[in-house]
Design a protein around this nucleic acid. Sequence first.
DNA 1: GAGGCTAGTGGCACCCAGTGCCACGGAGCA
DNA 2: TGCTCCGTGGCACTGGGTGCCACTAGCCTC
Lengths: 195, 195
Amino acid sequence: MTTTSAPADTARARVERAALELFASRGFDSVPADEVADAAGISRRTFFRYYPTKADAVWGDFGAHVARLDGLLRAAGPGRPVLATICAAYAEVNDYGDADLPVLRQRMRLILTEPALQAHSQLRYAEIDRVVAEHVARSTGEDPAGLLPRLVAASTRAAATTAFAAWLADDGSDLGRQLNRAFGELAGGFPGLGD
Amino acid sequence: MTTTSAPADTARARVERAALELFASRGFDSVPADEVADAAGISRRTFFRYYPTKADAVWGDFGAHVARLDGLLRAAGPGRPVLATICAAYAEVNDYGDADLPVLRQRMRLILTEPALQAHSQLRYAEIDRVVAEHVARSTGEDPAGLLPRLVAASTRAAATTAFAAWLADDGSDLGRQLNRAFGELAGGFPGLGD
DNA sequence: GAGGCTAGTGGCACCCAGTGCCACGGAGCA
DNA sequence: TGCTCCGTGGCACTGGGTGCCACTAGCCTC
């Protein structure tokens, strides 16, 4: 869940790199925003102009990420199997080159383990859920605020984050494979649980 | 998701009531902790001894809630259908008398709509997920940190919060019924989506 | 009953996230 | 040269959260 691999030595990118590095080595709560700003060569005030909260610096250009997901879902159009489409879209949006994987791991490790970032993530996930729920609504003709679209959005997102956690816990594994496994279980209604 | 109906005019309970009332009427961010403390007749310092964060005041005694869920799941024991057990446990833990429903609505409306509380909720949900994942692990003999237990915990929780949202949006509806609907869809693997 | 221990409380000072306001400086243009 | 405009930095302020200390009420012991 990040931006492209464009090296781009913009101030924004420097902030993001400094944030990941500092937070990963010393913990999110132990590094004041001032220090990240210093490391990136800007003032604290400017830091908060680039990223509205300290947590946002970890997420990079997440808006573009959501927009990309939205584009893929809209492109898939209705009529195709919904869960499979969502899974494929998640996989494609999170398909990074080998060079970018370490950064992705660092980012996701922070987001999944640091409590403050874990909390913040809910707000970001809500953006994803909105986009996914709209796709389900388009596919089924329901109201995006109805139970089914919301439920599909929330549980596919649960599948995605679980896949991320599993990928993170296993150094050798492939993210796409974990996503497929998780979505497979979900789509099957969890067979083997005895219901 | 709250404590029992015990009226209990303890300072803790007064804080909780004042918090719900003030936050509901003026918004979570617009009410400083000082004011909640004042309204409950205690100092700001003492407020933060009762509740470690301002957000926690909204949740009441959530630890007891989680403990109750854990107890129900352990009591159900392995061998029973897992999703059905989880659904029943969620339903039972959230089965309030008519007198307490308005408070529950107020609480859940805050948690589901106020961004700061939405973010904070993730930390609370993590406690639930832990308990549910352990139950799945007991039932299947897997590692609680494995993909399936985590996935079941995350997606059942997604079902539960979605059910809450639907219940909240529809004044007349019954929470238990919404939970059953959501869990039914989940357990069926979302038929009718064309996968 | 006096002294002492303890738990709950309040006050104070501090750190830090985030924000509004203003001042500065450089780029572009007339 | 003067103008505007934009990005930046500094400053001060609000508010969440915490560590520290002082006070008090109860309770226990001698």
